Amino acid sequence: MLDVVALLLLGGVAGFINVLSAGGSMLTLPLLMFLGLPPQVANGTNRVAITLQSITAVGGFFRGGHGNLGVSFRLAVPAVLGSLLGAWVATWVSREIFEFVLVAAMIGASVFMVLPQPALDTRPLTPDRLGPVIYFAMFLIGLYGGFIQVGVGALFIVVLYRMLKIDLRQVNVLKVFIVLLYTLPALAIFAISDQVRWGMGLTLALGNICGAMVAVRVNMGHRGAQWIKWLTLVMVVAILVRLIWY
């Protein structure tokens, strides 16, 4: 029973964080490991929650009139290709390597979260602003996200906000759409490899969905999300200490 409560509560926090900022999987992936799942199985199971959370967020954004299907699909294609490769690698990599990557990713994402974001002169994103560099960056994000997902939102901020200079509200909209499209094939690969525990994944997903629904309503951009980042960092530090002694 306590496991179910933990999955629902932390899932809700993670769903809220994932939509508005980045770092939700830094909470849920270690939680699944602490509840007894092997790292690779926890990695696959976490994708159930990411998928359903993303469906919820995408639906909410589009019902609210936010979205750019043409650009979103263009950006998602290389991300999906990268995700297929990343997920395949994740299914056979050793436990030791995966845990090392997880700790390194959590530390790296935490450092990025405390760095100040520059104030940029943002403008709408149109297809003519996309090019080979952006598509390759999306492939790398998909590759990383397919492998582990932890901190992938920070990579989207680098590419979409810093490189393409679109506002952070629109970054959030594009991010959840692209994550949904590349997570679906990744989840399939993990499921085929028997690295998904559906009961725990669906329980976690219920919490994620609730958090995502709240986040869609308060999509607030960079300044309003600062307190979310600090809350995430406090929790991540505690988890990192536990992971190192795991």
Rank of each mutant, 00 (worst) to 15 (best):
V101N: 03
A22T: 02
L204I: 01
P78Q: 02
G86Y: 03
V80T: 03
P185W: 06
L84T: 03
R242L: 12
L204M: 06
M213Y: 15
H222Y: 15
G24V: 03
A105Q: 01
L20N: 12
V179I: 14
G59Y: 10
I157C: 05
Q195L: 15
N18I: 05
M33V: 09
R74A: 15
A57D: 02
V171W: 08
M163S: 11
P30S: 10
Y161P: 07
M138H: 06
S83W: 00
F156T: 05
I189P: 06
I107R: 02
V89K: 06
M163H: 10
F98T: 08
T45R: 01
T203F: 14
W227S: 15
F61G: 12
V89S: 08
A14K: 00
V196E: 07
A137E: 08
A212H: 04
L115M: 13
W88S: 15
G142N: 01
F100M: 11
A22F: 10
G221W: 10
P127M: 05
I189T: 07
N43V: 01
L187V: 02
V158K: 02
A205I: 01
I141C: 13
S110A: 11
G65Y: 03
G67M: 02
L8G: 12
I107E: 05
V71P: 01
G142I: 00
S94C: 12
H222K: 11
L168E: 09
R47G: 08
Q53M: 15
I209E: 10
L243G: 13
G15C: 09
Y135M: 06
I244G: 13
I55L: 15
F112M: 11
L7F: 10
D3P: 03
G70K: 10
Q170G: 09
L9A: 15
R197Y: 15
L29W: 08
A105I: 00
A238H: 04
G199K: 00
G153S: 06
V179H: 04
V173Y: 06
S54I: 01
N172V: 05
M113R: 01
V152I: 13
A154S: 13
I178T: 08
V13I: 14
A90Q: 00
V19N: 06
L231M: 14
H66M: 13
T183K: 00
G145W: 01
R169W: 03
G146Y: 05
M163F: 14
G67K: 00
Y161T: 03
A186Q: 02
V237Y: 12
G86K: 02
L202D: 07
G64N: 11
G211R: 01
V237T: 11
V234S: 14
F62N: 13
R63W: 12
R47D: 08
A215R: 00
A49W: 05
M138P: 02
T56Q: 08
